[in-house]
Simulated assay, not measured.
Amino acid sequence: MTDLRQALDDYLRLRRSLGHQMAEAAYLLPDFVTFMDLRGEQTVTIASALEWMRSREPEVITTVSPRRITAVRGFTRFLSG
């Protein structure tokens, strides 16, 4: 298990223990962590988050795009703490 994957598990467990359902983040963030692992990156950057979003929706930005970024923002706030 990579450091990011462990951090994601910790993040979801913590947020759920605080009463958040985290259904959308639990769906979106594992894909982001897999994307980061495949690129060999351990540090989340704005560029990597945007690249992940664009790789999932290359031509048309839908309403899912802002939710993807929101999920990553919450996760990165956790990582920075």
Rank of each mutant, 00 (worst) to 15 (best):
I46R: 12
L18E: 15
S17V: 05
I69F: 01
F35D: 05
L14V: 11
G40R: 08
Y11W: 10
R67M: 10
A25L: 00
P66T: 10
S48V: 07
L12Y: 10
R77E: 15
L29I: 05
A7P: 05
R5K: 14
R13Q: 14
M22L: 13
V44E: 08
V44K: 00
D31R: 14
S55F: 01
R68E: 00
L8M: 13
L38G: 14
R15L: 06
S80L: 05
G81M: 11
R54L: 09
S55P: 04
A47P: 05
R68K: 11
L12R: 09
Q21H: 13
T2N: 09
L50H: 04
T76M: 05
F32R: 01
P58E: 10
D37W: 00
R15G: 04
E41S: 07
G19D: 11
I46N: 11
D3Q: 12
Y27Q: 11
Q21I: 10
A47C: 08
L28E: 06
W52L: 00
S80T: 08
F78M: 12
A23R: 08
L14T: 06
M36D: 06
A25H: 04
S65A: 15
T45N: 11
L29W: 06
W52N: 06
L8R: 05
L4W: 06
D10L: 15
T76C: 10
L38T: 13
T62M: 01
V33P: 02
E57F: 09
P66Y: 02
